[in-house]
Amino acid sequence: MVAMRQRGPWFDRLVDISAIPELREIVVRGDQIRLGACVTFARAAAHPQLRALTPMLAEACLSIGGPQIQNVGTVGGNVANAAACADTLPVLVALDAQAHIAGAAGERVLPVSELIIAPHHTALQQGELLTAFSFAAPPAGARSIFIKVGRRNAQAISRLSVAAIGHVDAAGLVDHVRLAVGAALPRPQRLTAVEALVHGQRPAPGLYALAGAQAVAVMLDITGRRWSTEYKEVALSQLAPYALARVLEDAPLPTRFDTP
């Protein structure tokens, strides 16, 4: 809509897909979740099972824009726009979500991390339609968190975001960990090197600090130094450890109103 205002309509037809019931469905079967591409941020955030299973997705949805944007904007739109700062992307990537793409030849499935090629570029082909995302909820007992840093408390574009999932086994060792960052990389991806560092370890401040340094190293490796790097390396080196601490320790679950 914003682009159309600046350029005028550059197409001869526009199809409204928002009324297709299948695209608006949220289906939860056990720990398997299927989220239609046209589910709005407001509906995703208000869905009781989704909130219970993946609170960080609700957090991300409620961090976008204000009520008007949340009432109209969709998870599918957020992903397909493929902005580096899109708030649902690190969450979906941390969940290893699969994107379902319908085309004339049938459906294909692609990890969200592979759907995004570069900022504002996706692997969607002419004639293809993003229909849904599917993912498994984090293991029972796992915690998840979405942290966003913006310049103000609403209607703010992420300067940096972190999505993390973690679980500690009975022996006190990390047996499940996922970490993804937003607004820091040209395309969203799990920081698997950081995850590997943490997996199987006993949660401790020293470990988190190492993980933070590793996260920064991964970011620098991918992006090199940009104008904003000086800020992001400092912020990420502290937010990544914080996110890991929050999901790996017995702390109360964070909320949208919790200062990150």
Binding site: M1, D16, P67, Q68, I69, V72
Partner: peptide
């Protein structure tokens, strides 16, 4: 005109939306 200020807000089926970002159809 880009959905940031809310001066164009109306209720559609009871939900608050920015009418500058919604096509009339």
């Amino acid at each position: 005109s880009i959905g940031e200020c809310g001066t164009c807000a109306v209720l559609v089926d009871g939900e608050l939306v920015n009418s500058c970002l919604m096509l009339a159809p």
